[in-house]
Design a protein around this nucleic acid. Sequence first.
DNA 1: CAGTATCCCCCAGGATACTG
DNA 2: CAGTATCCTGGGGGATACTG
Lengths: 122, 122
Amino acid sequence: MTTPQEYDPYVQGCPSRALLDRIGDRWTVLVIGILADGPQRFSQLRRRVDGVSQKMLTQTLRGLEADGLVTRTVYAEVPPRVEYELTALGHSLRVPLLALEDWAREHMDEVLGSRQRVAERV
Amino acid sequence: MTTPQEYDPYVQGCPSRALLDRIGDRWTVLVIGILADGPQRFSQLRRRVDGVSQKMLTQTLRGLEADGLVTRTVYAEVPPRVEYELTALGHSLRVPLLALEDWAREHMDEVLGSRQRVAERV
DNA sequence: CAGTATCCCCCAGGATACTG
DNA sequence: CAGTATCCTGGGGGATACTG
C-alpha cells in the first residue's frame, strides 16, 4: 500500500481484466441492456435475449449478481416468480455500454464494408 | 429495404452481434488501447500486452485489419519491420472503450468487494 | 416457472517447431 | 523480426432430463 496501486488491464492478473472478461461474453452485455428497461422475470429475459440457452442465462445472471450489478428477488408464490433488476452499480455500467452500442450503430456499415472487401480479396 | 433495418444486437444473427464478439475477446480491446499510443511493431505489442501468445496476437491483428480498425505496414528492410497503426475508425472506437476503462477504474473495488462477499458466503 | 444436474462435443487458444 | 503450420488439450457451452 506504499505505492497507490492503479488497476492496469495490460498487466496479467490485474483484477480489471476480470471486468473485461465479464463484459467480454456476449450475454452479459445483452442482459444488462434488457434489464435497463426495468425488472424482468427469468422467462422474459430468456425470450428477449434471442438465442441464449437456459444454462447460459442462469450462469450470466449469477455472475452479474456476484458482481453486485443485479439483484435477484424471489416472490413466495405458486408458480414461483423471480425478478432480476439492475442495481445502481449496474445502471452506472449502462452508460459506457450505451456509448459502445451507439458506436456500433454508427459505424457498423464501415466495419462490414471492410470485412466484405477483405473476404472478396479485393 | 422497405423498412429501415436497424442493427439490433438482441436479434440472433444481427451483424452488430459480430461487433460484440470482437469487442468481446480481451486481446482486441487491449491491443487497441496500446495502439492508441501510436504505431507499434509486432514485438512491441507482444511485449506490452502481457500474456498474449504469438498466435493470438497475430489473429487479433488480422481481425482488426479486416474490420478496418488497424492498418498493417511492411517495411522492406532486413530484418523485416512491420508496423500496426489505428485507422480513423479505430481511433473513433477508442472513445467508448475509454469510457469503459474509466468505469472499470472507478468501480472495480465495488465489484471485487461484492465478489468477495459472495465467495465468503456472507 | 425457474431453475439444477449431466453428458458430451467442439474449438479457442497454448505450446512447439519451422520459414522468408 | 514477424510471422506461418501443426498438434493437442481444457473447458465453454448446447442438449436433454429432472425437481421444488
